[in-house]
Design a protein around this nucleic acid. Sequence first.
DNA 1: CAGTGAGCGAGCTTCCGCTTGACTT
Length: 669
Amino acid sequence: MSKNLVIVESPTKARTLTQYLGSDYQILASMGHVRDLPKGEFGVDVDHNFEPKYVIPKNKMKMVNQLVKSTEGVTNLYLATDPDREGEAIAWNLLKVIEQKSKAKMARQKYQRVVFHEITKDAVLDAFSHPRDLDQNLVEAQQARRILDRLVGYKLSPLLWKKVKSKLSAGRVQSVALRLVVEREREIEAFKSEEYWVIEVEVSRQQPEARDQFVITLAKINGKKAEVKNQKEADQAVSDLKVSDYSVSSVESKEVKKYPNPPFTTSTLQQRAANVLGFVPKRTMSVAQSLYENGLITYMRTDSVNLSPQAVSATRKFIEENYGRNYLPEKPRAYKVKSRLAQEAHEAIRPTNVSRQSIDGSPDEKKLYDLIWKRMVVCQMAEAVVNETAVEVEASATSQKYLLRATGQQIKFDGWYKVYEKAPITEQVLPTLVKGEALDFKNINPQQKFTEPPARYTEATLIRDLEKNGIGRPSTYAPTISTLYDRLYIEKMEGKKIAPTPIGKTTIDFLMKYFSDIFDYSFTAEMEDDLDSIAQGKAEMPPTMKKFWGPFEAKVEKVAEEADKMKVEVETTDEICDKCGKPMVVRYGRFGKFLACSGFPDCKNTKALNEETGMKCPDCKTGDVVTRRTKRGKTFWGCSNWPKCKFASWTKPKLEVSKPEEKGQTLQG
DNA sequence: CAGTGAGCGAGCTTCCGCTTGACTT
């Protein structure tokens, strides 16, 4: 009797395969990687070809032992992990562990490597009829990636402990993420706001039957771009425009096609869920995980926009039946990944069954599913057609010649917009104007404005920029940001924006001063080129590592000896210590920020930092409500007068409603 | 429901990428 064992990464994938392969196959999950470099030591023998030392992490030991036991008496072992670099390495490490641990003195375990790019019955059965050997070059490329990350992370972190602050960390991915945040903050700090004016004129047609009014905006003065920089210039333009004659100098109309977005990847799903639902990436991922485990969507950690042919044809059928032929493009739309660095082991994120338009589940699950469902349907729908009109109006007075503009857009055919309650563009309908037509002046509206600094990152936009540079992977985007919080490198500001702390800024200053090459945005891309060469058998891991390690190690040693210890800037505040009268400063402790007396250690006074909840304490009425954290990290709300006032609450205190009786009536009526 | 920081310098901290549960307050 033949026994078949299949090993994949995830239990959900295992469950799906069971349906396709039948009862002759036992399918088990490895839960990701089964071996790794040891956490507590360097684990790379740099003097002997960078030989890595692999160990089975403690929390995986039980599972791995069971896995090995299950291989006993197996005739065919199939390694069906993901078809990418990491998947190949998981398969190889699995095999190594099984060979090592198998008690039976049987010959080298017979195994077969099986790869498929989509988990459909056809693709899976086809893959099982064409197994192959492990790709040693691909495994070597993964090891190179892993070892390089270890060299960088475990050499530079201790340097930070010595030169900046204990327990900090640096890495190829996290430090570039931090660099982006720090550089954006410095752009904002250096930004000088400039005054400018927008001048809008309300005009109307002169036709007795259609005296439509519309708004035109000043665009040019004497043929040059209008730059109205101050009140004086604005006054001049306004007084001229009040007495000008207006006539239409040009009317241009064209039809523009608006194409739908590609289906979701991890990163684009995180963007969209942040914008539309206000989810942070961590929340998006946990909700998506639940949808995935319930069989409602495809795998949620992917960088691919590929769609299985079956999914596309089912979606086309759905579109034709529910929206009609007009909404179906002649040919299916195919999407391509932009990044050369994508691994594309999985499909795009899409509903597993497009005819399931809504689902049962938590409110979060319903909302996220709705986003995913719509994105899939629209990506196969016809483009929208929008009529765009550009009108130019001349206004002449005295010696100055003014040009004003209006643009209109009108939806001619809604196409994929139909799926959304609100079209992604707002219609602006202009009257049908004729070139040379004279217009009447009705009103003028000059507006003083100031240029705005670039926006701070949100978690989602930071991930977008990391992905743009090929830095990090779908499985690490959200965890990388958590690391930046854990190290107190960044903090959340109002409106979900993130800003660097003094520790974050100092760390980046140090890293960029001595190791700018590693934290350059192109470092990962260049590393990927080297990894490609290894994967293609054109290069080998040890010399590739050596090329990096030689100069790197020398630099680390030099910096360790010669560099000065960095000083982390201390934020002072207007707050005065109520014990000694000295100003108070912001300190970063185990539980986040707090106020401490600058006279420390002579004065040990501390105070809770007002987190701007904007509420007064409901008990003592004088203190402010501040957010605090317990030793276990759970957030609660307390009074800034603690320990004098003992107010504390697990939930955010509500502002008192002045007249509760009225509220009851409103609810009834 | 509630402490934190500096330096003294014990002993520890740290990377990226692949995956799920198991622990409470």
